[in-house]
């Protein structure tokens, strides 16, 4: 007994070190999506408040840029309005309007953003109160941003394209061949596109858009352009994409609500 006590006394610092390390590693090991969401839930109350205060200044500093982006978007919307008004008389309008009603966009702001990690996350300043729920798509005016992971009443976290866990079905705009988009953990400007078969003809600067196969994103939202591609052994291309979305300067984003999502998913479940 005495030798044990002496041992503990002699190595007390080392034992404390071991104990603390073990606690830290347990924290890491338990970092499942569920745990993460619980921890985030707690600290979002604190950090969400802090970040939204601090963001006031950041927003102010980028006013000029935001303004010009808004002006551009306004012009584009006005153009579309013009086109729709021209269409209003024809019978085509019925299907146009029905499509439009499938999706609704919730405008939100990014209040916390990381781009330099392997598992990056965004925090948005809207949550369940404004109809933002898990598995909704997030886009900016530049292109696809990510998918909503967890939500609380006033906040939501998003897995962006630049997270090693992110996967999305996308397709070539020109030929409609679909592949899987994922990130390789290196630069936030580029991502990889896999599973495009070798017989498809590719060109640099071809545009990649969402495939619309899942109920998360509508068909045809822009993702990026082909930067380079190689055909290594096997039957698939290795394609490097230049992403449209500038994750470092992300500020205003839209969350996509799909009104027919449940219907689509229920039907698909039944079919399986």
């Amino acid at each position: 007994m005495r030798t044990l006590l002496r041992f503990i006394q002699k190595y007390s610092d080392f034992l404390l070190f071991l104990a603390l390390e073990i606690v830290a590693l347990i924290l890491m090991a338990q970092d499942s999506a569920f745990q993460r969401s619980k921890i985030i839930e707690v600290n979002r109350q604190v950090s969400g408040y802090l970040y939204s205060k601090f963001d006031g200044s950041r927003e102010y500093l980028s006013l000029r840029e935001s303004n010009s982006i808004l002006v551009d978007e306004n012009t584009e919307l006005r153009n579309r309005l013009q086109q729709i008004e021209e269409l209003l008389d024809s019978s085509l309008v019925l299907s146009e309007i029905r499509d439009a009603y499938q999706y609704q966009f919730v405008p939100t702001r990014v209040i916390h953003n990381s781009v330099y990690k392997q598992y990056n996350f965004l925090t948005l300043d809207h949550g369940e109160k404004d109809g933002v729920f898990r598995d909704m798509g997030v886009i900016s005016d530049q292109g696809v941003v990510g998918i909503v992971l967890e939500t609380s009443e006033n906040f939501a976290t998003v897995i962006p394209i630049i997270n090693l866990d992110f996967r999305l079905s996308v397709k070539l705009k020109s030929s409609n061949y679909a592949g899987i988009l994922q990130w390789n953990g290196k630069s936030p400007l580029y991502a990889d596109l896999n599973e495009i078969p070798f017989h498809v003809e590719l060109q640099e600067h071809d545009t990649i858009v969402t495939s619309g196969f899942s109920s998360i994103f509508p068909d045809g939202i822009e993702v990026g352009t082909i930067e380079s591609f190689t055909l290594e052994q096997g039957n698939f291309y290795e394609i490097r994409l230049r992403l449209f979305t500038d994750f470092q300067g992300l500020f205003h984003v839209n969350v996509i609500r799909n009104y027919q999502k449940e219907e689509q998913e229920n039907l698909e479940d039944q079919t399986e």
Binding site: F17, A24, I26, L27, M28, D31, R36, N43, Y119
Partner: peptide
């Protein structure tokens, strides 16, 4: 330990900074 925990809380990375800082 506390320092790492504090940073982890804000960076949404439970345990990582704690382990490194300890």
């Amino acid at each position: 330990f506390l320092l790492g925990l504090g940073i982890d809380l804000f960076e949404h990375t439970p345990g990582m900074h704690t382990a490194a800082t300890v």
